[in-house]
Write a protein that binds this DNA or RNA. Structure first.
Lengths: 118, 118
DNA sequence: TCCTTAGTTCAAAGGTTATTGAACAATTGG
DNA sequence: CCAATTGTTCAATAACCTTTGAACTAAGGA
């Protein structure tokens, strides 16, 4: 039971930019980046919207090729497609994340950046 | 007779990304970048859309802070706000332009890159 | 002054997006 | 099996986006 993702070479620049041009999705991406590749399930984004609404935004991100969702039981573990995006659009994701981090108008990323269980 | 532009510190990341997430506007930005800061008037973008439609897209770009439009007679001379964007979002514009340049799905930039009159 | 050129504004049409609650499916644990 | 947990799908709504042609404004040249 896998969900549909575009291949790396199918990721479209305007689509990625359009998808990132939404404050909720930008916050999700920023949060994922702050977690350094640790997979998160949908519930961990509830600060950014309702369950239904997150399902919608996470599908947009996945279909654009920005995130990957892996089905694990009843969970969908979400990660940033960092390597794929860097390969396709070098420097883009880093500059977006850096810019988002400097923007006080965007919702702050909660939690601890590196609280990774050993 | 000046047109409204946001100050550099008023430029919003989600707004800029959203505005660039449209193929026509991305093509306009790419074209401007290829002209290395030489101001262009609206007619020089006619390959990307009708006059009315360009007026719409150019207003979006200007209101987002991506371009600057200076009124010169009946013309509006358009430039990329490269320095302002670089100051606000370092590396973002460069990576977007580089990514757009590699994308064969986007309309090619016509004309000569450096045909600047002396 | 009259005409042309450059762009904007308007209204309308059609399409897409974001958000919501209710209902649904699928897995897991007791 | 039953119940709880996770997340999706659906329908509806309201807002916004893109595109168009017609009408308009403003400046410049003959």
């Amino acid at each position: 039971m896998t969900l549909p993702h575009p291949n790396t070479d199918q990721i479209s620049l305007p689509v990625v930019l359009g998808v990132l041009g939404d404050p909720t999705r930008l916050a999700i991406v920023r949060y994922l980046a702050s977690k350094q590749g640790v997979p998160l399930n949908c519930s961990q984004f509830l600060e950014f919207g309702s369950k239904t609404n997150l399902s919608y935004h996470l599908a947009k991100l996945r279909e654009a090729g920005v995130t990957r969702a892996e089905v694990v039981g009843t969970n969908r573990m979400i990660t940033l497609r960092r390597a794929d995006l860097d390969a396709r659009f070098p420097g883009l994701l880093d500059s977006v994340i850096a810019a988002a981090g400097d923007d006080p108008a965007l919702p702050a990323v909660g939690g601890h950046d590196l609280e990774v269980p050993v």
